[in-house]
Amino acid sequence: MGGLRVLCIAIVLIHSHTIGAFAADGPLRVEAQPLRSASEFLSPALRAEQADPIRNRGMLWVEQGERLFTQPPPGGAPSCATCHARAETSMRGVAARLPAVDAASGQLVNLEGRVNECRIVRQSLPPLDYETDELLALTAYLTALSNGEPLAVSIDGPASAFYAYGQQLWNERQGQLNVACTQCHDQSVGRKLRGDTISSAVPTGYPAYRLEWQTLGSLHRRLRACQLGVRAQLFELGSREYLALELYLKSRARRHPIDAPALRR
């Protein structure tokens, strides 16, 4: 196939006057477009459902998260609220600034990682796995405390290398279907894949209740869904790859206000 490709390209270059004949198959437009907020892609009915705390299904996790945050865990460990009193004010904006580089370890840590760090170090509890109801509940509660706050991650200093890695992953083709994130979510926004409109991949609503999942899920699970779609080798939830992509996406969408837990198709 390699030889075939070279031959074809050579022939196309030689006969460049013929290219106009199949311009309809030509490259997609590549200029950047302003990002559209994720809720813009919802139907008015779903948007209303998301905005109504009674009907937003994600609020079940937020309520559970508040209980988990305030009640002492079994075994005598302090509750989250023991250190983080008055979470409505003390934790406001925290989710908007994550992921961030942990000064001690030099690693990029997101909200899930921060919660687990507290569990291990402060509460002597085992870390929670991604997509468990407990971790989803705590992250939904803590993210909702930042609702309305614009995403404000740092990509300076030690974060810059993680950002660059995330950007690289975003731009490189992957999987058997050989598609890069940017080809859909920068270059084909608003177009349809079957009945689904391609969004700008603005990650302000996660953890989000996704109708396709019939449950709440993390941003990493959502990234995994696109990797499945292009038949790529999946990264682990919480992996450095997904963390780097999370940082890239949240920087790309900086100043977009958090609206979690969102409803998504």
């Binding site: 196939m1 999987g175 038949r231």
Partner: peptide, 10 residues
């Protein structure tokens, strides 16, 4: 096509 692809699912 099977060559020149990146991170193809197992």
């Amino acid at each position: 096509r099977v060559d020149g692809l990146r991170r193809v699912g197992e």
